[in-house]
Computed example of a mutant assay.
Amino acid sequence: MFGTLSEEVEVKVSADKAWQVYGTLKLGDLAAKYIVDGLEVIEGDGGVGTIVKITFKPGSGISYYKEKFTTVDNERRVKEAEIIEGGYLDFGFTLYRVRFEVKDNPNDEPGSSCLMKTTIEYDVKEEDAANASLATIDPFVALMKVANEHLLCST
């Protein structure tokens, strides 16, 4: 069972400035500070192949997962990561991919705002199809809010 979830928000900073957070490990640092219990870089420097372990706060339903950055495209400002251990994989998911995209806002003056889009793609084994309801964009919406507040305060 394949599914997708996405959310797009406007940020009143340039796409280049937003990418300096979303396209790097700075996004993980913000998550570790405000949203999750911890984030540990297992391997890499933020580029393709980087593996991070994300530990969640007690009571969140998932204790941890490891994700691997599979795409970091600085030109298109797209970053993708897939869970490779723990988390949703323990509930019958065979794929859980998160994509961040930062685009210039075509409805605003150049460089004055951008659109930040987060998309989750997931696939669940048929026998675990009931667990598809566990997939949620909410933590990433919360992360976008924290990152966007950080970006606005640092302008």
Score class of each variant (00 low, 15 high):
F2D: 13
L5C: 07
L5V: 09
L5T: 12
L5K: 15
S6T: 11
E7N: 15
E8K: 10
E10V: 07
E10P: 02
V11R: 00
K12M: 12
A15T: 02
A18T: 00
A18I: 05
Q20F: 02
V21D: 03
G23K: 03
G23M: 03
L25Q: 10
K26N: 07
L27I: 14
G28K: 00
G28M: 12
Y34G: 07
V36Y: 13
G38H: 10
E40P: 03
G44P: 01
G49P: 06
T55Q: 12
F56S: 15
F56V: 08
K57G: 00
P58V: 04
S60N: 14
S63E: 12
Y64N: 13
Y65W: 14
K66D: 03
K66V: 01
K68D: 01
F69L: 10
T70R: 06
V78W: 08
K79D: 04
A81V: 02
A81I: 00
E82S: 11
E82Q: 07
I83V: 15
I84L: 09
I84C: 05
I84S: 01
Y88F: 15
Y88W: 13
D90S: 10
D90R: 09
D90L: 07
F91W: 03
T94M: 05
L95S: 09
Y96E: 11
R97K: 15
V102C: 09
D104R: 12
D104C: 10
N105L: 03
N105W: 01
N107M: 06
N107I: 00
D108C: 08
G111Q: 01
S112M: 01
S112K: 10
K117F: 02
K117G: 09
T119E: 13
T119L: 08
I120W: 13
I120M: 13
E121P: 06
Y122P: 06
Y122S: 04
E126N: 07
E127I: 07
E127M: 00
D128L: 06
D128R: 10
D128N: 15
D128T: 13
N131M: 11
S133R: 11
S133P: 00
T136V: 02
F140H: 11
V141F: 04
V141R: 08
K145Y: 04
A147R: 12
N148A: 07
C153K: 13
C153R: 14
S154Y: 06
